[in-house]
Amino acid sequence: MKKYILITILVMLAVVITKPAAAQLETHWELQWNISIPTSDFKDYIDETSIRGLEFGGNYHFETNVMLGGAVGYGAFFKKTDRITVEYNNNTITAIHFRDLYSYYFLVEGGYAYQSDFFISPYARIGIGAYYTEQIVQIGLLYWKDESWDFGLRPEIGALIEVPNSGVGFIVNAKYNTVFNYGNDLENLNYLTIGLGMIFGF
């Protein structure tokens, strides 16, 4: 955890230190469709890829190639199991499990975008902030719902693809979400997201 916080602070410092010398070049607004794949113990709980993900964000790009911004979005995960038998203390229940998990996030982002003469700019950035998780479990006729706010982190790599002289472009990226100490039978909530979207403001 401390390592991640340190990385975030370093990214922030880089932005602050370079800011006086760097004029703001442009603001990019991003709208993305996210495809998310559960990993680690979250994968044991829901092993199906989510295609229900949407994200909106914006980043300032500085002359130093540093970018700073934020993003809000969500991903929805669903799983209908086979009829399974689960034991808990002196209880045994055989039923189909319906597992729904909605992950909403509110992140501050900092990173670096390499500016080339070509129209593609690879970038790396990290997002840090709050994740709100809504978890619904239905086992036969039984129903539970848990909600929680947790701290999370999201490193990301991708590319910005500009459509010349149009003011728009495309974005493609991979980002790894970690929601720490999530609980509810999962230690951390981890999922890999592939983002595809459009950028406005070139």
Binding site: N34, R52, I96
Partner: peptide, 24 residues
């Protein structure tokens, strides 16, 4: 993208899917 906003689960639920056998 509009479809991505839907909150309804992607699976279907039939009446018999809610059957359960619970023993203690």
């Amino acid at each position: 993208m509009i479809a991505s906003c839907s909150k309804y689960p992607t699976y279907t639920v039939n009446t018999s899917d809610l059957d359960m056998v619970w023993t203690q």
